[in-house]
């Protein structure tokens, strides 16, 4: 360690102590006489049962409301056709390393598995990405991608391509935000996606299509 480095380290640790000491003094000065009680009287289970036909129906509505296009299939066997249908115009796609091969049996274009990882420019050159999802929230029209899941993959692959196709199974659909949070493990990166990229920055109107994928298709598998 150079003299400069150790000097920096010493300065860093003393700043830390000063900030902490200030915060302790302030906290003690401002703390209420009685300890704070955290109340959680809100609903932690949703109005609709996870995986039910009703919860899928609501998810379909909320996804559609935020400009995702939803394709319903009754069972796993229908996924390949639905995926091939939405990718009819896509010449090439990227998929995470563990995406089930059966989902792509109807697709005729070029499939690039992200393992070893593609470069950013390679990702920019493909037309679409296909993934699964960790959980979906019907109340809000959201699905969550976990980078730890082999059918979802690292974050860049669902960000750079302009078209995202996400396959969601009924078993992973919950009604409310609390139910989803309880199912998720935050130790790997998560991305909560609700509709295609959008902005409300121009006169506070929602406009779809900025930096993330501008087209979002969901294949919803279940009753």
């Amino acid at each position: 360690m150079s003299a400069r480095d150790s000097g920096d380290a010493a300065e860093r640790s003393s700043t830390r102590e000063i900030v902490l000491a200030r915060l302790r003094t302030a906290r003690d000065a401002g703390n209420p006489a009685t300890p704070v009680v955290v109340t959680r009287e809100f609903a932690t289970t949703g109005r609709l049962a996870p995986g039910s036909a009703a919860v899928l129906e609501r998810l379909d509505e909320t996804l559609t409301d935020y400009r995702a296009t939803v394709y319903r299939v009754g069972s796993e066997a229908g996924v390949a056709d639905a995926v091939a249908g939405v990718l009819a115009q896509a010449g090439s796609i990227v998929v995470p390393p563990g995406l089930p091969g059966e989902w792509l049996t109807g697709y005729r274009g070029d499939v690039r598995r992200d393992g070893p990882p593609l470069s950013v420019d390679e990702l920019d050159a493909v037309d679409a990405v296909v993934t699964g999802a960790a959980v979906a929230i019907a109340d809000t029209g959201t699905f969550v991608l976990s980078s730890a899941a082999s059918d979802q993959g690292r974050r860049a692959i669902t960000l750079v391509p302009d078209h995202h196709v996400c396959v969601i199974h009924a078993a992973d659909v919950v009604c409310s935000v609390p139910e989803a949070i309880a199912r998720l493990d935050p130790s790997s990166p998560l991305t909560f996606v609700s509709g295609p990229s959008a902005t409300s920055d121009i006169e506070l109107d929602r406009v779809e299509g900025v930096h993330g994928p501008r087209r979002l298709d969901v294949v919803l598998v279940g009753p």
Binding site: T140, G141, R155, P189, S194, G195, S197, S200, G212
Partner: peptide, 14 residues
Amino acid sequence: STGERMNPYTSTWT
């Protein structure tokens, strides 16, 4: 904030 049920993207990382 935006008056949406959920904003388009929320990222978490550790």
